[in-house]
Every structure is written in structure tokens, then in C-alpha cells.
Design a protein around this nucleic acid. Structure first.
Length: 208
DNA sequence: GTCCAAACAAGTAAAGACGT
DNA sequence: ACGTCTTTACTTGTTTGGAC
């Protein structure tokens, strides 16, 4: 069977630009220059014969066609990511988790997680913020008070009041099995305790 | 508070380099 | 030859800081 597909690089550029609503941020994520992203998107629009973005000054807006196109493309990349992760031998999936500086890492019983999800390795990076997530240094981020961010899915992981802790993941990968498992496990954790003698700054790899 | 100029930021287009 | 990317010059709107 032959699929009539646009260039996948162009689709990647479109998907990233649509999530960030910025060629610059998309370029950052894809490790190319904004010019390259702009050209890829432009080429895609020319090929499809459909305008996907409204270019305003210092602002990108998805056209109706772009809004209609994005979910399918994102889902497609998610399927590819899922298929790839299932293809790998057990134990080779590594989830890199960024954690804000004031989070008590002792809350995370990683040994328990590994015993339940032997196929997922977890590596923690603290301190980490949106910068690390956008740069791709971490796959997901536990952030303080980040209830929304364009192109990212933000989900509350504690039930307390105030700013709270949020799990932030790129829209394109937020439903990957390892992130879904990690999110569910986080939510099942007991509530946070007072941080009397907290001693942060663990950075290091943990593999199952 | 308003005006203005300079600096800054974001995107576009064209030319050319590079790898296959 | 082709696809992809970088570099450079350029345009345009926003921000900032100083003068009035």
C-alpha cells in the first residue's frame, strides 16, 4: 500500500510550530534555525495548497485549516512514538523527568515505580524548569504552578491548594505509555509532607 | 503623560553549502 | 540533481529609556 504523505520533516515542523505558535520555539525544539522551520512550513502549505498559519507580526496563528489539520498530525506522531516504544526491547525506554528545585524528591519512591514498571527507566534532573523541557533535556517536567503553557499539557498532580505541582508534557507525547504510567503513579503518591529538613539536588541516572 | 529614537525580536526571502 | 539547512539582509512591530 502506498500512502500519499507530505514530507515528514515538513509535518514535524508544522506540528512543532503549531504547538508553540512560534517558529523560533519550534526551531529550538527541532534543533534547527527559524528559517528552516519557516521554509518547511511554507513548503508544506505550497504542497497542500492550504494556508496553515496566519503570519502576523511577532505572532503565528493557526488558520481554521491548520487547526483542523493539527490533531490528526499530532496523533500520527503519537502513534509512531507508541509503535517505536513497543518495538524496543523491555527495559530500554528511558523517561527523563525534570523537577523544580523545591520539590522533595524523597516523595518519589522510584524503587516502587521500577518494580511496577520494569520496562521504564527513570532519570531525574533537579532543578529543572520549562527551559529544560522546551530544549528537550527532559521528557516531562514536575513544575510549580505551571497550570498552562502553549503546546504542553499541564495536569495537576497534587490535590492541595495554592500553586501546586503540575506535570507538564509536550502535547505530542503526553499520551505516550511511559508518561501515562508515570502520571498515574504520581497521582497515586501520598500527599506531600512538610519539608522540614529537605535536602535537595539529586541528579543522576536510575535505570531499571 | 506623551513623544521619539534606538534597540530588540520575529519572520521572510534569497543565495549558497552540504550530503546523498 | 535534489532535499535540507544555514547565513545574511531585510522588513515590521514592540519595548525601552530619555527628554519635554
Amino acid at each position: 500500500m502506498t500512502y500519499a504523505l507530505p514530507p515528514l520533516n515538513a509535518l514535524r515542523a508544522f506540528e512543532a510550530a503549531a504547538r508553540h505558535l512560534s517558529f523560533k520555539l519550534a526551531a529550538h525544539e527541532l534543533h534547527v534555525t527559524p528559517g528552516a522551520v519557516g521554509q518547511q512550513v511554507k513548503a508544506l502549505e505550497a504542497r497542500l495548497g492550504v494556508q496553515l498559519f496566519e503570519r502576523l507580526h511577532k505572532q503565528l496563528i493557526l488558520t481554521e485549516a491548520g487547526q483542523a489539520y493539527l490533531p490528526g498530525i499530532s496523533e500520527g506522531f503519537r502513534h509512531i512514538a507508541d509503535a517505536t516504544s513497543q518495538l524496543k526491547p523491555a527495559g530500554t525506554v528511558l523517561l527523563q523527568v525534570g523537577v523544580h528545585g523545591s520539590y522533595d524528591l524523597r516523595r518519589l519512591d522510584l524503587a516502587a515505580f521500577r518494580s511496577t514498571h520494569a520496562e521504564i527507566g527513570v532519570r531525574m534532573l533537579q532543578p529543572a524548569g520549562l527551559h529544560e523541557l522546551v530544549e528537550g533535556k527532559v521528557d516531562v517536567l514536575i513544575a510549580r504552578g505551571v497550570s498552562r503553557h502553549p503546546g504542553y499539557r499541564c495536569e495537576r498532580i497534587d490535590e492541595g491548594s495554592g500553586a501546586g505541582d503540575w506535570l507538564v508534557a509536550p502535547e505530542g507525547t503526553a499520551d505516550c505509555p511511559e508518561i501515562v504510567s508515570f502520571r498515574a503513579w504520581l497521582r497515586a503518591l501520598p500527599a506531600a509532607k512538610p519539608l522540614a529538613d529537605r535536602r535537595p539536588r539529586l541528579v543522576g541516572g536510575v535505570r531499571s
